[in-house]
Simulated assay, not measured.
Amino acid sequence: MSLFSRRPGRPEASLDDPVFHLSDLDVWYGDHQAVRDVTMTIGRRQITAMIGPSGCGKSTVIRCLNRMNDLIPGARVVGKVSYHGENLYDPEVDPIEVRRRIGMVFQKPNPFPKSVYDNVAYGPRVNGMKGKLDDIVEEALTGAALWDEVKDNLKGSALALSGGQQQRLCIARAIAVRPEVVLMDEPCSALDPIATAKIEDLMAGLASEFTIVIVTHNMQQAARISDYTAFFTSDIDPAGVRHGRLVEYDATEKIFENPVDQRTEDYITGRFG
Rank of each mutant, 00 (worst) to 15 (best):
P8D: 13
I62W: 11
L15T: 15
V35R: 05
M184N: 01
L141P: 01
R173A: 09
E209M: 00
A160E: 13
R44N: 10
L133Q: 06
C56P: 04
G128M: 07
F106Y: 06
A13W: 10
P109R: 03
K130S: 13
K151Y: 08
S2N: 15
L88H: 10
C64K: 12
E149I: 08
T233N: 15
A223P: 02
T142H: 08
W147A: 02
P259R: 05
G55K: 04
D26A: 08
R76G: 00
S189N: 03
G57H: 06
L22T: 10
F210T: 00
A197K: 11
Q165V: 01
T233E: 14
D185S: 06
E139R: 14
N258T: 00
N119F: 04
N119V: 09
A207K: 15
V19G: 04
E92T: 00
V98T: 06
L146E: 05
V77F: 11
M1K: 09
D148T: 09
G123A: 12
S234Y: 10
L202N: 01
E248V: 07
R125Y: 12
V78I: 06
V241M: 15
C56H: 06
N119Y: 02
I62Y: 12
L159D: 00
P8T: 14
S82D: 00
M129R: 10
E248A: 08
R7S: 13
L15D: 10
L202T: 04
P124Y: 07
G128N: 04
R168F: 12
R242A: 15
W28L: 14
V81M: 00
D227T: 03
H217P: 11
H84N: 12
A160K: 15
R242Q: 14
V247I: 15
A223V: 12
G131H: 08
D24H: 14
G123E: 04
R173H: 01
R101K: 14
P73L: 05
R63K: 15
R100T: 11
R7N: 10
Q33Y: 09
V137S: 02
N119S: 09
P11Q: 13
E200G: 10
A121D: 04
A172L: 01
P187H: 07
R224N: 14
M40T: 08
I136S: 02
V78R: 15
R63W: 13
R224C: 02
D237Y: 11
L141W: 02
L169I: 03
G164F: 11
I225G: 06
L206A: 08
I255A: 11
